[in-house]
């Protein structure tokens, strides 16, 4: 399946099969849902957060491999970070996935997220990759729902 190596790589498939931090985190301090009405992807981001820092995060996703992998990768990048670090991370991820310019991949910086960059070639699927990040943003702001529409 050489022509798919760009998107459906092992990293994505592994996260899809066994998402990290995929179980609901209850109780939590913040929680938001993400919904993509177009394809039915549905996820919930849970945070245990102090004023400054996200101590724990989970993302429970019902949906396609892209949305599951993206949520799973996101949790590994966010755990233990400060709110301002996370906000920066969200912006970087948006640029990485949807920015006008083809990004330069730096594995040290992007980690597993680099595997999701392939989604740029599949415009119909970009929202699957950004959904968890939108929900994270909502959760941080104390909103309860993010949709892609």
């Amino acid at each position: 399946m050489e022509d798919l190596s760009d998107l459906y790589q092992e990293i994505i498939l592994a996260h899809n099969k066994r998402p990290r931090n995929g179980e609901p985190l209850i109780p939590c301090t913040h929680q938001a849902e993400g919904f993509n009405p177009l394809c039915g992807d549905k996820l919930t981001v849970y945070l245990r957060k102090s004023d400054e820092e996200v101590n724990e995060i989970a993302c429970n996703t019902e949906g396609c491999a892209i949305s599951r992998a993206s949520g799973s990768i996101m949790t590994t990048m966010i755990q233990g970070k400060t709110v301002s670090e996370i906000e920066k991370q969200i912006e970087e991820t948006k640029t990485l996935l949807t920015g006008d310019e083809e990004p330069e991949i730096d594995l040290a910086q992007h980690g597993d997220m680099a595997a999701l960059v392939g989604v740029r070639k599949f415009p119909a699927r970009i929202k699957c990759a950004t959904l968890a990040w939108h929900a994270l943003e909502s959760a941080l702001r104390g909103e309860v729902e993010a949709t892609t529409e």
């Binding site: 022509d3 459906y8 992807d41 396609c64 599949f122 119909a124």
Partner: peptide, 23 residues
């Protein structure tokens, strides 16, 4: 079971096969 319809449809599309996925 193991593959979501949208992933199936995306992969089929890369092979020139147009199908619909969704509800």
């Amino acid at each position: 079971d193991s593959a979501h319809p949208h992933d199936i449809a995306t992969i089929l599309d890369t092979k020139g096969i147009a199908v619909r996925a969704g509800h």
